[in-house]
Amino acid sequence: MSDVNKGMFGAAGTGDTSGYGGLVRVSSSPGSSERPYGSYFDEVADELERAFPDFNGAIEKVIVDRGELTLHVKRERLFDVAKTLRDKDSLRFEVCLGVSGVHYPEDKGRELHAVYPLLSMTHNRRIRLEVSAPDSDPHIPSLVEVWAGNNWHERETFDMFGIIFDGHPALTRILMPDDWPGHPQRKDYPLGGIPVEYIGATTPAPDERRSYR
């Protein structure tokens, strides 16, 4: 994922004539990693390949960054990969630490990501699964049958991002009121604050303020 940041002062359309508005900064996320991955990641990748013959068809890329392993999985194969990771003795990732949604609106076709951190208590290891779905078809298979604890986490990700988890027993809003429109943590949803009132002036809400970026 590559990100282009323009301008210095956050809110656009201000009367800023300092010239910092023309600043362009490009940053990119770490890309796919090459073997050897280091520490126990090679073992995990090998075991998964052994247990899952269609490794390359299911896993889109493997990223090793900052001492953590991320497996990008295709959403159609997510359930099988998850079940293998949980059941195979050499992998045994018994605990799933929830689902975290991330919204990348610039990543056309793969805007919504769901991240599953996994923990293996038997082998004392941690990895991460990442799945992506486009905005136009925000469906990801539910992993409640693999790890029951994902029930509420998937509801929260649905509530906040609009990702629909197919196969979830009761996918409803959990944090916002039941009839709330929109999905708050998406990037196209405003922060929703109100202007702050002081004696003699008001300051705009945090997402509309000029600030040094």
Binding site: M1, D3, N5, R25, S27, S28, S29, L97, G98, S100, G101, V102, H103, V115, P117, A148, G149, N151, W152, H153, E156, Q185, Y212, R213
Partner: peptide, 26 residues
């Protein structure tokens, strides 16, 4: 657990906390 995504800037891109009470309450 803190799951933090950075896009290289001065503000977090996405921050999600895996909180124990949320999972335990289930």
């Amino acid at each position: 657990g803190a799951h933090i995504v950075s896009d290289g800037g001065t503000r977090p891109y996405r921050m999600h906390f895996r909180t124990p009470s949320f999972s335990n309450l289930q």
